[in-house]
């Protein structure tokens, strides 16, 4: 994997890969089992009916045991348990920004755009500039309807809800331009409710921020 943009991004991608690996493995095994049974037990000309085949006008006998049910349940549970642990860990990381001295930028979603308010009162619309390698907290809310503030490349986003403030954080590792987009239907302008996240060298950011 290439170096991740931000610690949360790395963790998200690792977790997704874990789910994908287990999911693909489980899915392949189960579907293979299905196909194997379909082929192995297909009707062949001349082969006799199974002894317990459904008979018109007779309730079929029970088939299968409780033991089998327990084994089935345990298999499914075991798989789920593994991935649950991974998810709890990542949630903690997403929701606990690492250190003090971080920059908190208020994000206001509105129909249809994003307003950013910096600690010094500076306001920007649809474009937010941040320094590289710093912990940035976005405090997300909405001025009108339900939106979702999403940083596509960073693999993180959160709902923007009127009357509520929800925090997410990033620590961008690379300078560059990244996409912000609304991910909750919010009216006719939804498709164009995009913005840019610009990560700058800390020194360049300083001069921009002060100027």
């Amino acid at each position: 994997m290439t170096t991740a943009l931000s610690p949360v991004t790395a963790q998200w991608q690792e977790l997704f890969t874990l789910y994908l690996t287990i999911g693909t493995a489980v899915g392949s095994i189960v579907i293979a089992l299905l196909i194997y049974n379909i082929i192995r037990y297909r009707h062949k000309p001349g082969s006799p009916e199974p002894a317990d085949a459904p008979t018109p006008g007779k309730v079929p006998a029970d088939r299968g045991t409780i033991g089998a049910a327990l084994i089935l349940t345990l298999i499914v549970t075991g798989i789920l348990f593994t991935i649950t642990l991974g998810t709890m860990e990542t949630v903690d990381l997403i929701e606990k920004p690492p250190e003090k001295g971080t920059m908190v930028i208020k994000v206001h979603g509105f129909q249809w755009g994003w307003k950013f308010i910096y600690p010094n009162g500076l306001e920007t619309v649809n474009e937010v500039r941040v320094p590289r390698d710093e912990v940035i907290i976005f405090a997300v809310t909405s001025d009108d309807v339900f939106h979702k503030f999403q940083l596509i490349e960073f693999k993180i986003g959160v709902d923007a809800i009127p009357g509520k403030v929800i925090w997410i954080w990033i620590k961008p590792a690379d300078t560059g331009e990244y996409t912000i987009q609304c991910f909750e239907l919010c009216g006719v302008g939804h498709a164009f409710m995009t913005g840019r996240l610009i990560v700058m060298e800390p020194s360049e950011f300083e001069s921009w921020y002060k100027g």
Binding site: W12, G23, I31, K148
Partner: peptide
């Protein structure tokens, strides 16, 4: 049955809060 297996497995992804931070709305 085959298609439901695929849909069921992707559903487990969505049960993860961590993954859901990003997956919701995609």
């Amino acid at each position: 049955v085959a298609l439901f297996i695929i849909g069921g497995i992707t559903g487990v992804f969505n049960s993860s809060v961590a993954l859901d931070y990003y997956l919701r709305g995609t």
